[in-house]
Amino acid sequence: MIAATLYLLLALPPLVWAAAVFDRIGTGRGALLAGPLRNGAALLLRPVAPTEAPDRLNRLLAPGWYLALALVGLSVVPLAPGLVASDLSTGLVLWGACEALTVVVVFLHGWSPNAPFPLLGAYRYVAIALPAMLLSMFVLIGAALPAQSLSVGAVVEAQREVWNLVRQPLGLPLFMALGLALTLRGPFDYAGGAELAGGTSAEESGPALAAWRLARAAMLVAFSAMAATAFLGGYLGPVLPGPLWLLLKTLAVMAATVAAGRFFARMPPARMLTLLWVVLLPLSFANLALVGIEVLP
């Protein structure tokens, strides 16, 4: 348990760095590999700009919570058979809780500076993220069905025969929608969008912004690891050792997520909301029904 935790903590910084690198690919924003580190260091040296009458405590804590949620979410992912930081029989539920709390944390982040743009970003984010949460949980339940368990380890073991990606082809794409929402990117970036001058982090600067970005990247890692575990068989794989497989798959999902965030166009919030509720959510039901029929003996 402790070993697994340590592995996780060791693996996280490089992965976060990798996430930042992925984000930079194709944007032409300076050095690809060193850029993130340089930027981060620069931010750390700048002062934090205060706002008028903020909610100081929440402002200070929000990035921490965000990071914490990413870490906790990551902790239920098994690195190898039996090697998992928190070996809960209800790991999926804990992951779901992390998702839901992310909404709260992002809202707090937007709310605390007491400024219009962050607040608006926060409102919009909540509206969009709530159905996305629902969506993801239906998909994850679909992943849990063949395992007959809510333990993430069991979900992996149930994929020895065939990956969930095959069982439920709709699952991963739908789950990616959650990933985009959780990490505030792509078509779901209603919290930090450019047209809101940065959204929830519009008023942030210096180390606070650095912490927030760090947490966001960590969340991308956590999400990717979870997606790789739930749909791509996690540590399962021939020849190579389990953790390595997991690492590879995680990186793949990360890349795919970032690419998807770039690829899909943004829509007005109301249309996106309608899309989520009326198209994607029923799709997830269909997905669930599909799995349900498949796994019945």
Partner: peptide, 27 residues
């Protein structure tokens, strides 16, 4: 103990982020 580890991680993360934000100069 299973539930202890996430709690430890939460403390860790919050403390880390807090410390990070204390790094910059006073504005």
């Amino acid at each position: 103990t299973e539930i202890a580890m996430p709690l430890v991680l939460v403390l860790l993360a919050v403390a880390f982020a807090w410390g990070l934000q204390r790094l910059g100069p006073e504005a």
